[in-house]
Design a binder for these strands. Sequence first.
DNA 1: TCTTTAAGATACGACACCGTAGCTTAGTTG
DNA 2: CAACTAAGCTACGGTGTCGTATCTTAAAGA
Lengths: 208, 208
Amino acid sequence: MDDRNEETVGRRTRRRGSDLVDAIHQAAILEAAENGVSGLSMEGIARRAGTAKTSLYRRWSVPADILLDAMYSHFPQETPSPDAGDLRGDLIESLVILAELGEDPLGRAMFAVIAESLRDPGLHERFESEVFDPKGGRFTRTVLLHYAEQGRIDPARVTDVTVDIGEAMVLKYAVDHGRSPDRDRLARIVDEVILPAIGMDPRASREQ
Amino acid sequence: MDDRNEETVGRRTRRRGSDLVDAIHQAAILEAAENGVSGLSMEGIARRAGTAKTSLYRRWSVPADILLDAMYSHFPQETPSPDAGDLRGDLIESLVILAELGEDPLGRAMFAVIAESLRDPGLHERFESEVFDPKGGRFTRTVLLHYAEQGRIDPARVTDVTVDIGEAMVLKYAVDHGRSPDRDRLARIVDEVILPAIGMDPRASREQ
DNA sequence: TCTTTAAGATACGACACCGTAGCTTAGTTG
DNA sequence: CAACTAAGCTACGGTGTCGTATCTTAAAGA
């Protein structure tokens, strides 16, 4: 049985440098997405990348290093650019970005890291400092801070608790349902939880 | 080197029935708490319980079965009993129960199951149906439903989104900080997120 | 073209866990 | 006390990963 990656069987060329590194990165992300962080192995990554273990050990010493490297290289740079017009729309959009990550191997790998973080806080710290922070991936936090700066929402309402609501609710949904919430659900999270928390409850006016 | 559990070295008695099962349950929970669900192994559980693999295979066929069995046997039966007087206090208390679980091996094992759930929805389903639901462990949901029934909060505000807020925020905090939130933090979650979401924003009166 | 670099292939002993088998013996039951 | 049940022990072949070593050779640079 030939268990090498389809794309690599019969390949006669020999990849070097960034071509090879990219292939290894992709392999690491796919492995993490499918098998979790604890399921990563040098053998598995090498097999999927269609390369030899020796090529891996030449650059990294443990599988987690490859994964963090891979995620840093491929994590989408967040471009918040809220038009500062439509708070509700911008909040939903920032959650859509997060939710759509869940459909992507990269996002699944990210969730795998988050899952492992419950047991391995060190991994979470590395993910935050080596991937998440450099790429500015903060989703609803970015939007809320932006609007607060502009004085469009009460800055006192934008706390380290409230900026986490969106991510927390999406994470919980993913845990419970095994998939990312759809757009309707995200809109409900914004309307029923985030907006009320920042003092802009859409229902508040209708009541009383 | 003798790597058996301290309590079992030199033990001359031979445990049978529920004594033995309890020891195996404890071992499975500790193993899951320390090594995660994917780190469970029949060898590891047997070693920690100070018993033989054969005694495990006599009753279970895979480590996950032992863990779910163990969690079912030891999961705290939730006794909500909200006095129906202090909504805020009851909400905080229900989150304290959840947060304190995180300090316990059983709770850590539960988090390990939740972590694995992101990759293995089947495990999550089994945990829900075989452990969580039978034990009625629903935390803030229980409190909110109770108060809504009594007409003390708007039933339209108690949705499948809002009942999850507490658990979601505690889960997110645990992921981010590697430990459970303290009481102050839980109070802030209640004040800044849950109460506003059910239309009882503590700050709303002071504003405008 | 010649030299240098590194990718690729293969093999190695070590280790951990798998699931099962065969046996001894402690604990329970009659 | 005798018979039975099941706990405990040891060992087995098989598999997968580990990290390293050795060698060949393609690709890049001079």
